[in-house]
Every structure is written in C-alpha cells, then in structure tokens.
Design a protein around this nucleic acid. Structure first.
Lengths: 251, 251
DNA sequence: ACCTGAACACCGTTCAAGT
DNA sequence: ACCTGAACACCGTTCAAGT
C-alpha cells in the first residue's frame, strides 16, 4: 500500500499535485475552512485549491452538505474528552466536555451553523456521544433519559455557538440583536407586563454565564424528567441480539 | 407566472403593478415562501415576482437575512397563544404554546433553519416571548430564571424543527441520519460501552414524544436551576471586561 | 431625487466528450 | 474506465447612468 517512490528527474515538476482521494479532499477542505471560513469551502473553490475542476469532486463527495459534515467530523477530533475520567463533580466534568465542544465550534464560527443540520456519524462524533453518556451514567441518570438528553445537550451547545458566531461574522445579525434589545426595553408594561417586569434579565449575563446555566439546567431536567418509555417497557430485554450469524437484511 | 390577464389593448396598462413598499415586499415574499419554499425567496426571484430588478429591493431591505427575518416575524402571527389564558396545568399550557410555535415552523420547513439565526424583533415575536414569560411566572419560576429559560425553550423548539425539516426536504440529510443510526447500532461494547448499553433508546420515540419530553425537561431545569445573577448582582449594570488582549497577530 | 439596467463576482450540479 | 471542460441555471450586491 506504499505509493510509488517519486523519481525527481523532471525539473519542471509541479508542487506535487496529489492524486485525488477522499481524505485529501477533506484535508484540503478543512485547511481552506480554517483559513477562509466555511462560506469559502465551495465545490468550485475547493476544486480550484486542488487544481482540478469542480466536477471531479463529485466522484468522491455527493454534495456540499456531505462535504461540510466531513469537515465537522474532522474538527470534532479537537474536543477535549479527558474530563470524563477526571476528578470532581460529574456535572462539572460534563459541562467541561460540552464547553470544549462549544469552544471548537466557536473557534470556527462558520461551522456552527452547519453543525445544526449536518449529522456526522464518524468516530469523533461517536466518541463525543459516548463521553456524554458515560458522564450521565456516572451521575445515575436512567439510560432512557440519558439517551434523549445527550441530543438536547449537543443541540443547545450547537445552537448557542451558531447564534453567537452568526453575530461575530455578520454585522446584520448584530443589528438584529440590537433592535431586539431595544424592542424588549421599549415593551410597554401595559401590553407586555412580564417582559417589562423581568427587564434586563432577558439580555443579562455573559455568554459564558448563560451557557453554563443552560448546560446546568438541561442536565438537571434530564436527570429529573422521566421519558414515556419508562412506563412502556419496564424490562430492558428489547435489545437487539448481536449480529452474529444471520445478517439483518432490512434497511 | 401571471400572464394572459385581460389587459385593454389601447392602453399598456399592466396588471396593476403595485408600488413598492416594505409591506408589499414582505407580503410577496411570504406568499412566495409558502408556494415555493424559502430557498426560492431570493432577491432576484422576489424582484422578478414584483416585476422589477433586484437592485430596487435594496431600497427597502438591507439584505437577504433581513428579508428572511421579516418573513419569520410574519409567520409567527400564526402561533396559537390562547393556552396562556386557558385552563389546566401551566406546564401543559406552556408546552401547548411551544408546540404551536414548533408546528408553524414545521409547516414551513425551509423557515426553521433560518429561524435559528434570524432574530426577529417584531410584535409577533414579542408577544410570543411575553406569553412564555407569563406562563413561567404563573408557575412560580423566578424572574431571572424565566428570562434565561425563554431563550432556551425557543432555541430547542427551533432547533428541533430545523433538524426535522432538513430531513423532510433534503434526502442527503436523511442519509446522514440513517448512517448515524447504523453507526450507533454497530458501536462495539468494547470501545463504546455506554452507546451499546443504552441501545435503541438513542433513536427511540416519535418526534412528538421526544419534543414533549424536551420541553418538559427544559421547563423542569429552568424551574430548579438558579442563575448566577441571583447571587451576584442586585441592581448594578453589567460591566464589560476591558479586553485589551486582542493582539493583531499575523499568521 | 429616486430608481434600475447592467455588471461583477461568484454559486451547485450535470453530462457529453475526451483521454 | 475514468476524469473533466463547458454549460446550464442560477445567486447577492453594487453603482453609474437614466428618468
């Protein structure tokens, strides 16, 4: 599986245009994303980077969405999962893992938005899900609740990063927030008594404080809210048998 | 297209081309969105619908994002807020309002995704925030927690609608979910013990069941999780950290 | 003063034709 | 058999020039 040794006899050798592979395409896409943002990772721009035409990429990648999902999966490798086996309260360690995930999205703002739709299924994503489940298990959260909770936790983290990063990059989004704040402040106690009553609390706190509170309260809700499944199936014998022997043919 | 309308021959009277106004533009945009989806509500397509050039729209709308936010604000008028003054448990009525909001997004799937970024500040959005705050207040949720909770509740509702609607319209997204499910099922108990242990619970339940559980658990978390503001501040305004460390680093 | 035609600088995706 | 040039059908946004 070794590549042929390069024989550098040609002096007008180009900068080693690498053969197109899925890995090479994703690597280049990640590099391009880090340097220019996801909005520049287009099929055409990426093809240009790879010194080919856009049509060639379609041999390896089905469409732009799949390309973006592949970038996300790659980036998830940077999430720090070490708190899983660390010390301290399990909730704090869970918040640390979720915070690291959010941080990764923040560092690449353009990615967060697409992460809300892209559903990666690669090893880095699975490892993250496993880490969160392990911490919820350690905290004594029932399996059914933990299973549904992991989705919500990743969802709020992703959505928060997407919102925040939209503001960073898009001045129009910032204007929208500004006018929302103005509208909230101007809300009359007559027509909007509760908005007037809570006042600045609607927009108070640092993003950091708010995010930590969100994690804490969603964890709390997950811990204390039974799923309907708990009443439906009391025993856990509904699990699929391991796929030894007969392969399940239905998809 | 609206051709073949009976126009008098003598005059070149067109089919009553309405003068451009902000309201007229938004109305047409909403109609176009309902008939062809948000992805067709482009500046160019909308201008075509209004029988003008795209440049003319920029007199009234700053950019595409603002246009989409205006559409969302209009659609929020369809949210059923009557449960606020209804009967029954406050949590059930809150879930009903949030469910109606989610339903509106579901009925116009293309809108949900943009709703995650667009921050409307119109009357319909304010009325929705007011309604949620009123219900949280009725439930005895402290103001500071209610203020932060309303954001999370709208966020999870929006994100859920966006995810679900992405699947409906985009077969690629559906494939992604399918391969995620496969990946979860195949997870080895050796490397991913918790994923293996919870098994199908990760993907169990109807969207309806899951969404209701999400609302319930986020409400529960909001109710029981104190904000740092409760201990930190009395009535002081928030101060921004100096943030002098932003060095212009070149790479 | 107000509006817009035309241009600039891009897109995703497909497929016939070339190697 | 594999790859890609070229085309199709679009985009957002700007601004000089026309009325």
């Amino acid at each position: 599986m070794s590549e042929g040794s390069p024989t550098p006899r040609s002096r007008r050798e180009r900068p080693a245009k690498p053969a197109l592979t899925y890995e090479g395409i994703v690597d280049t896409a990640v590099r391009l994303m880090k340097s220019e943002g996801l909005q520049r990772v287009t099929m055409r721009r990426l093809a240009q980077e790879l010194d080919t035409g856009p049509a060639s990429l379609y041999v390896y990648v089905a469409n732009t969405a799949e390309l973006h999902a592949a970038i996300l999966e790659d980036l998830l490798g940077a999430v720090d999962r070490t708190p899983v086996d660390g010390e301290g309260e399990w909730t704090d360690r869970l918040i640390a893992v979720l915070g690291s995930y959010t941080q990764v999205l923040f560092e690449h703002p353009s990615l967060a938005h697409s992460a809300l739709v892209a559903r990666p299924s690669g090893p880095n994503y699975l490892a993250l899900v496993e880490a969160i489940l392990a911490l919820l298990h350690e905290g004594g959260v029932p399996d059914a609740q933990a299973a549904w909770g992991v989705d919500v936790l990743l969802q709020v983290a992703t959505a928060t990063a997407a919102e925040q990063s939209a503001r960073d990059r898009n001045s129009a989004a910032e204007d929208e927030v500004r006018s929302l704040i103005t509208a909230l402040r101007r809300a009359s106690p007559e027509t909007h008594p509760r908005i007037a009553a809570v006042g600045d609390a609607l927009v108070s706190g640092t993003p950091q404080e708010r995010l930590t509170w969100i994690f804490r309260s969603v964890i709390q809700g997950t811990l204390t809210t039974p799923t309907p499944a708990d009443t439906n199936r009391a025993d856990d014998s509904l699990r699929e048998p391991p796929d030894t022997g007969s392969a399940p043919s239905r998809k």
